[in-house]
């Protein structure tokens, strides 16, 4: 697992985290190399989203080492240091969380201009370029409330990219979408991964994870149960639990129905 260690941009070692009495992460190890796409799969409540939140310091683990691009995240004590980290790590949420009072363009421009101090014109240029990438140029002046879920999620991706992050975390970004718009969001992520953007995805879209991932990690109950190439995890799982999970997904997409939201 450490073959490409020099290339690692994210590394978690023995990360433990509890919320009160509930132990959510029970010793997570994870390495993500630069330019790779890593999918984290597993049943609900296995701590997948929490792993992402640890990586950009939205939550702090009780023990373990987290390194992101040379920064020891677990040793950050000041809020300003955590902010500096979050500028480098983009995150896209399940519920998109766009800013409803701003147009699509302003949603994307806000962080670069207000946080990084980028010139407004330059930020707009980048924003339009990103909107092109997510195929929403024509919606630049629309408000989030006027967009479909899939469109909002694509704007959220563009908004995260506008900060020119070193890696992007995708937290179940299609779980809240109706099936018709899932495809357009996956398209955008697929493009990003092909362009070499380092991505960590928590997802229930198994077929998609299989297609785009360099590594798939299976977690359950706060532990990594198995990891490997998509082929190994989905086609020839050694681990009996993974085999059971994967075979339970008829056509890989049954999860979407089971997931509810």
């Amino acid at each position: 697992m450490n073959t490409f260690a020099n290339n690692a941009i994210v590394r978690l070692e023995d990360v433990h985290l509890s919320f009160g009495q509930t132990e959510v992460l029970k010793g997570i190890d994870l390495t993500v190399n630069k330019g790779d796409a890593v999918s984290i799969i597993g049943p609900s409540g296995s701590g997948k989203s929490t792993i992402l939140r640890c990586i950009n310091a939205l939550v702090a683990p009780q023990s373990g080492r987290i390194t992101v691009g040379g920064t020891r995240v677990d040793q950050l004590t000041k809020e300003s240091e955590r902010i500096a980290l979050r500028k480098r790590v983009g995150i896209v949420f399940q519920q998109y969380n766009l800013f409803p009072h701003l147009t699509v363009l302003d949603n994307i421009v806000l962080a670069p201009t207000r946080i990084l101090g980028v010139d407004r014109r330059e930020a707009e240029k980048l924003a339009r370029h990103l909107l092109e990438k997510v195929r929403l140029v024509e919606k630049a002046n629309a408000y989030p409330g006027q967009l479909s879920g899939g469109q909002q999620q694509r704007v959220a991706i563009a908004r995260a990219l506008a900060m020119k992050p070193e890696l992007v975390l995708f937290d179940e970004v299609t779980s809240a979408l109706d099936p018709e718009t899932v495809g357009e969001v996956l398209w955008v992520i697929r493009d990003l991964v092909r362009d070499g953007m380092t991505s960590i995805l928590v997802t229930h879209e198994m077929r998609f994870a299989e297609e785009i991932s360099d590594t798939v990690v299976f977690t359950e109950n706060g532990r990594v149960v198995d990891r490997g190439s998509p082929e190994q995890i989905f086609r020839n799982p050694d681990n009996p639990r993974v085999r059971q999970f994967v075979s339970g997904l008829s056509g890989h997409n049954a999860m979407r129905d089971g997931e509810g939201i």
Partner: peptide, 20 residues
């Protein structure tokens, strides 16, 4: 979630308050 989104983008508390 609005606070969280702001935080995720690197806004400080004060900046998030002011702009979002």
């Amino acid at each position: 979630a609005q606070w969280e989104a702001a935080k995720g983008l690197g806004f400080s508390r004060g900046q998030a308050m002011r702009w979002i």
